[in-house]
Amino acid sequence: MRFDLIDLKLYCDVVDAGAITAGAQRSALALAAASTRIRKMEDTLGAALLTRSRQGVTPTPAGRMLLKHARTILAQGALLREDLGAYAGGVSGEVRLLANTNALTEFLPEALSQFLAAHPHVSVDLEERLSDEIVGLIAEGVGDIGIVAGTVEMGALQTYPFRTDRFVVVTTAGHDLAKTGRVAFADVLAWDFVGLDRASSLQRFLAGKAAREGKPLKLRVQLRSFDAVCRLVECGVGVGVVPQTTARRAAKTMALGIVDLTDDWALRDLTIVIRSLDELRPYARELVESLRA
């Protein structure tokens, strides 16, 4: 049985993404090449590794066993690169960081820039995910460090406070909602929305909340940043849900109304989650300490 590291990484990426296409993108492989590699792995093993359906792929019992060992092998490979990197004069450490939309867009750019400037031989693999997904992936050892909303159940993971923010509704300055000051998310669903790309963790979260209210989230346009959302809201395209820090910054240069959401989930106590500080590689531990500071 011969699986190389590219095979193992591809397989983990496919399982994490829940689709061969998305897994191939994460591994920087063409879809045809990725499909061929997965098929050859199954032929070599003599058993199916993935159950395929219209909803995506899930690992079979054999696939779950391979996943467990593949992650161990890849983690050891990362440790080997880290230990030898200093001798080679290149990147001597890599940290995989998973974060929700709020943390990724509002707080991590500054925090990471300071850390990376102080550690020129360390790289950070940053990925956006939903908070509950992050907790599961950190528990499974897929990521080193996660930053999640404090409202999710974190089980036995070690946690540290990170930042506090809240989501608000942004509108045009003269909008009816702007006159209320406070509103429930369910009452905002009557208006058209300007939002982030449907693949973003926040947009998926809001769509789920709208579904629980039995109402559609009427997205007129999807963009790549909160600042872009604010610009189109100012132009009267729709209303948006953004972090309060973003809204206050944008309101300095744009004619916006800012309306507090009364829902409990709108207040975001962002939390750092890890499996164990002792299990982290040195640079990952240093990043945790840097984020806490």
Rank of each mutant, 00 (worst) to 15 (best):
M1G: 06
R2H: 14
Y11I: 03
C12L: 15
D13T: 00
V14Q: 05
V15R: 08
A17V: 08
I20T: 14
T21L: 14
A30K: 15
L49M: 11
S53F: 12
R54W: 04
T58F: 02
T60I: 09
P61Y: 13
A62V: 00
A75F: 10
R81E: 15
S92K: 14
L97A: 04
A99T: 05
T101M: 02
Q114S: 11
E128C: 09
R129F: 15
I134T: 02
A139I: 03
V142F: 04
D144M: 01
V152L: 13
M154Q: 13
P161Q: 11
R166I: 01
R166L: 03
V168H: 11
V169W: 10
V170S: 04
H175W: 05
D187Y: 07
V188D: 00
D192W: 08
D197S: 12
S200V: 00
L206W: 06
K209S: 10
R212N: 15
R220K: 15
V229L: 05
V229P: 01
R231Q: 12
E234N: 04
A250T: 03
A251M: 11
A255P: 01
V259Y: 09
L267N: 13
T271S: 00
R275H: 05
D278P: 01
A284F: 12
E286L: 13
E286G: 01
L287I: 08
